[in-house]
Design a protein around this nucleic acid. Structure first.
Lengths: 378, 378
DNA sequence: GGCGGAACTGTAAGCGCTTACATTTACCGA
DNA sequence: TCGGTAAATGTAAGCGCTTACAGTTCCGCC
């Protein structure tokens, strides 16, 4: 029987004859090159035109009950699945939304995207995700790729990208929405939060504890407006407090725990008087905490450390990380709603600025006076 | 000028006349419904047939230099991007690989997939990812979806799924590869590791420390062969050591830190004599560690805890988590290679079993004798 | 019985691309 | 100069689907 099944794979059911007597049901078969069954095959089996089959699948209400039954049975029989490309070609609509993220390895994006996808799925859309590895070149490719694939709309992370890309999207009239960032001065449709302002809030909290010597660890700022704005936010905070932002040591390094650790050591060696190190995200901050521990520095007694994003990890490390909480799931799901509305009504979505809040936890405290940091550094 | 550009969007360049004198270059334009430019538009502008344009794009060697220049200039001029659906329809080939994961929020899958994608990209393939939320129903949908989208091949996680799905893939002759698991007795093409055996190894290490009262925290095992096999691995280890596997308390709970914590408490309350808790993944283990701490239990003095996967977090928590290291990136990239070979030669890939190794770190130690655990539990 | 209109179904023209095959052009040696 | 071959290009037939439009069927009612 196994053999027969296999053998039948090389045929295609061509016609099914139904008799009153259910037991006398014959199947006509033709030899084919064994490709997927098509609408036409279904039509043939159901003894209707391809148009009717198509209607059955897309607007079942327009078809009579008996016909629909017959067609559905044929669909079942053949295991028919519509060819997506052909459908998109003919209907000029794909019910697909594309999202392009810098990386999938970052919990931040993963969480927001998950929510984005869930909201999309509920409304019958499919999400296509691709990642760029923080490479603008690759981002441009992926955007073209998703547009070529017929994405009805696009979700992009952040503002900063070649104007040509925006021109391309504009010219093609592809609805797009930016996320994970919100800049009041920009006019692109966006659902995000104000990275700069959020960081200024956190900086105020740090300053309120009495810190005056603050170090900064950032992800690479080139082409990454989230990092840029967060650093800017710190500087604004310092400036407003009457401090010179340019004095604060800054280390830029790719996003990883290990790099955060190294950056921390670099700062503490070059500016031993530092009592607080602010990181533009939690992962770097956790790296900094680790290294602090290895160097024999107590957090927060010797040095306070802060992060940004409030990933799950922030609450798991000890001491618990002070950071900025961002409503990722809300953002994802709101973005999905706005983008779908945009796609369907060709009506620009409203720009949304979501609130973020400072999560003051254990890694931030008043600085211990007169630490002989040089001792620690051998 | 801005206005002009916008206005021009509603037209389509129809013909470009080149004169010797570069400055005298005129553009003929027609009013269109402002859709994407097509192959035909390019052909018209370049004054060649659509076949030639197609060849230019796909097999440039077959076209003379001068023609190719002209065509490429037209492509540039119009900002032409081939329509993916149409291309797939005509060529019956998409250079797209689909991957279906239970979730994107899990670092485990993210890391392996990233490597998978990188290897694919190098070879000119595009990866389409979609996630199921551990729902078999949704997985079936997504598989059909990706097949309908013309995926040349599919990457699936684990073995356990409705036989109908395998039948579907078999009948459609869609190359697929399983990953994140390897069962010697199964014949499906797979690149993964032996979850059961790996866990037995770890169990031996736990037993070697002198533990005899072992609790188990698992993700939900229904439809999840990774979890099933890991639990089985523990039981095999216990059995081989002459212990009764059925006596070990087991709590099944969805994958999350909080759930791990609750499960840990449940075990310790119902079986206070437990000296080691083995979790089927690191996230559950970290939750268990947290709750242990909250309950005033010292890890590993009062209770040892182990995980599985060796996610980044494992090295970041304190004490560091004893776990099983899995070569996720290697697995992803190997899977990509195998799958591409499968797709291209229609030749079944070899089944690969990757080595995993026990990472003995700080959460596993000899049990402290005679702990009065009841005291701790109020 | 016949008529009007609603409900259903069929016909066929594409959607944008690839490619087998036909045709043209270029180039070579006799 | 001319035939012959190879290289370049054009022609046109689909790929599998949707949908405008046309045709058919079926009612209810005069």
């Amino acid at each position: 029987m196994q053999g027969l099944t296999w053998w039948l794979c090389n045929f295609r059911v061509c016609e099914v004859l139904f008799f009153e007597n259910q037991k006398d049901r014959r199947v006509l078969v033709t030899l084919t090159n064994n490709t997927l069954p098509t609408l036409e095959d279904v039509a043939r089996v159901a003894r209707v035109s391809t148009a009717t089959v198509s209607r059955c699948l897309n607007r079942p209400g327009q078809v009579s009950d008996s016909t629909r039954d017959r067609v559905m049975r044929a669909v079942e029989e053949l295991g028919y699945t519509p060819n997506f490309g052909a459908r998109a070609l003919a209907a000029k609509r794909t019910f697909t939304i594309g999202a392009i993220t810098p990386t999938m390895e970052n919990a931040i994006f993963a969480r927001g995207l998950q929510a984005f996808q869930e909201t999309l799925n509920e409304a019958g859309y499919t999400l296509l995700v691709s990642s760029t590895g923080y490479d603008p070149q690759r981002e441009a490719e992926q955007i073209r790729n998703l547009v070529a694939r017929g994405a009805d709309g696009l979700l992009l992370i952040g503002y900063e990208r070649d104007p040509d890309i925006y021109a391309f999207l504009e010219a093609r009239k592809v609805p797009y929405l930016l996320s994970w960032a919100h800049r009041p001065e920009e006019k692109h449709p966006a659902v995000g939060f104000n990275n700069c302002k959020s960081m200024t809030e956190l900086t105020k909290a740090v300053l309120a504890e009495g810190h005056r010597e603050i170090g900064i660890i950032s992800a690479q700022m080139e082409g990454n407006d989230r990092a840029t704005d967060r650093v800017k936010g710190i500087r604004v905070g310092l400036h407003e407090a009457g401090l010179d932002p340019q004095r604060a040591p800054l280390v830029e390094t790719p996003y990883s725990v290990e790099n955060g650790a190294n950056a921390f050591e670099e700062i503490m060696r070059s500016a031993p008087q530092t009592t607080a190190v602010m990181c533009v995200n939690d992962v770097l901050a956790v790296g900094a905490m680790n290294r602090a521990h290895d160097m024999g520095l107590d957090v927060p007694l010797d040095v306070s450390i802060t992060g940004f994003d409030d990933i799950e990890l922030a609450k798991l490390v000890k001491p618990k990380l002070t950071t900025v909480h961002v409503p990722h799931r809300l953002m994802g799901s709101l973005a999905a709603q706005q983008l779908m509305r945009f796609v369907e009504k060709t009506e620009a979505p409203q720009i949304r600025n979501l609130a973020s809040i400072v999560e003051k936890r254990e890694t931030l405290a008043k600085p211990r006076k007169n630490v002989d940091i040089d001792l620690v550094l051998r």
